[in-house]
Design a protein around this nucleic acid. Structure first.
Length: 423
DNA sequence: CATCCACAGGAAGGACGGGGGT
DNA sequence: ACCCCCGTCCTTCCTGTGGATG
């Protein structure tokens, strides 16, 4: 009975794909296609001139060694170790800017922990920015504990109590990592954490230990004091990598990722410097190196030099902008379009007028100013627009709004949207 | 120095679409 | 069949405010 929906779900996908694929072949010229494909594939087969193992530069790659993080690794290991003999480890909070190795260290320690062969031990890793609602976090956690939870329909309380029963009945030693925990807190408060941190009795003889990972320290302020004392039993701060350290990390990785001699030292230096100038963000540095490799390969170069790094940096930015633009809802696009009409920037009132004019022309309902203001804040966060509150004294308070991306790119991407009749 | 503009941005809630348990 | 839950987008209503101006 319960399985009934499943075959239906599985049918769904193939039919959609089947319905689509002939359509795709029609779009491209059918005659030219085969030749192109073989060329692409052949190039791909022999073309890995530069890369030895590109995976080593992907964000999800977990290196066997994490240089400059021994101290943190040991500290985390020490906190978690009691789990191996069935006593609850302290909860743990990890702080540090992006790309300082928080996630990597945690995952590394967890994987080593699981190798110790304690069957009751379960380690769950959840990024609360990706599983970005309370329910989804719970559902994902449940899934790692083999609790079957529908992806919607149940109340939060119901899911929580099912999870707790599972931990209790199995006597499980559960360790839950909540990455980017500040997102969860700022959007949904600390209710879940409150439940989790005081589950104690309800799940005995099992236990639940929580590792929270956060990019900023201030998120603590939003926590209920009782949650804070429980969650912050242990704290660990990850300092940013220095440029020297980044250089060493990049050298390490490039030895795995590229064939010998492909990456020139100055390129590594520049890459480290560029990523280090923000705050030692290793993830960005590694990503930059990967894109540089792709750039070099596409251009048929034999070496990766500083020029490749610069190009990669531009390309990464360009891709990011295009991707962000494409995934925008229609209304957001219209607002952006309205912003782009003002070369020297504008303010909220003017922008709203211009925007309503655009919606009328496109035959859409205009959103309220409040909503537009909210969307503007989102666009600001995406780095597509710059919006800063300024005061013009008696003439009120408003936002100075300016487009900070290439208007030509904007125009090109927006033209792809069939819902937008741009003339 | 008080005033007052033109908004900012929080809170609450509603409509809607996804889906439960019993 | 019935009543419930959650997330997403919005709207409505609202209070708050920096600083040029009178």
């Amino acid at each position: 009975m319960l399985n009934k929906p499943h075959p239906e779900h599985q049918d769904y996908f193939p039919t959609e794909v089947e319905g689509r694929s002939p359509h795709l072949t029609n779009v491209s010229t059918a005659q030219r296609l085969p030749a192109d494909i073989t060329q692409i594939f052949r190039k791909a087969k022999e073309g890995r001139v530069l890369f030895a193992d590109r995976n080593a530069l992907l964000p999800e790659y977990l290196p066997k060694h994490l240089p400059f993080r021994n101290q943190q690794i040991n500290a985390v290991a020490e906190v978690l170790a009691p789990a191996l003999h069935g006593s609850k480890p302290s909860n743990l909070l990890l702080y540090g800017k992006t790309g300082t190795g928080k996630t990597a260290v945690t995952k590394l320690v967890l994987s080593k922990l699981q190798m110790q062969g304690v069957p009751k031990l379960t380690a769950s890793y959840i990024n609360t920015r990706i599983a970005n609602t309370e329910y989804r976090v719970l559902a994902e956690f449940a899934a790692t504990l083999d609790v079957k939870i529908p992806f919607t329909g149940l109340s939060i309380g119901e899911v929580t109590s099912r999870i707790f029963s599972m931990i209790r009945d199995k006597g499980a030693y559960a360790i839950l990592v909540l990455d980017e925990i500040d997102y969860l807190i700022s959007n949904y408060g600390d209710d879940i954490l409150y439940e989790f941190t005081r589950a104690g009795e309800r799940i005995s003889p099992g236990f639940l230990a929580i590792i929270g990972i956060s990019n900023n320290l201030q998120f603590k302020e939003a926590l209920n004091p009782r949650v804070l004392t429980s969650l912050g039993e242990e704290e660990l701060i990850f300092p940013p990598y220095t440029v020297q350290e980044l250089k060493a990390i990049l050298s390490d990785r490039s030895q795995i990722a590229f064939r010998p001699g492909v990456v020139l030292q100055p390129a590594v230096g520049l890459c480290a410097a560029m990523a280090g100038s923000e705050h030692g963000d290793a993830r960005r540095a590694v990503d930059l190196l990967r894109v540089a490799g792709e750039v070099a390969e596409r251009e048929g170069l034999q070496r990766i030099d500083e020029e490749c790094i610069r190009k990669a940096s531009q390309k990464a930015e360009h891709d990011r902008v295009e991707e962000a633009l494409r995934s925008l809802p229609v209304q957001n696009k219209l607002i952006l379009l309205a912003v782009s009409k003002f070369k020297e920037g504008t303010n909220t009132g003017q922008l709203y007028l211009s925007y309503t004019a655009l919606t009328a022309r496109a035959g859409l309902e205009a959103l309220t100013q409040r909503r537009v203001s909210g969307i503007l804040a989102e666009l600001d966060l995406l780095g597509l627009v710059e919006a800063a509150v300024i005061s013009k004294g008696r003439r009120g308070r408003t936002k100075r709004i300016k487009l900070i991306i290439d208007p030509i790119t904007l125009d090109r991407v927006l033209r792809e949207d069939p819902d937008l009749a741009i003339n």
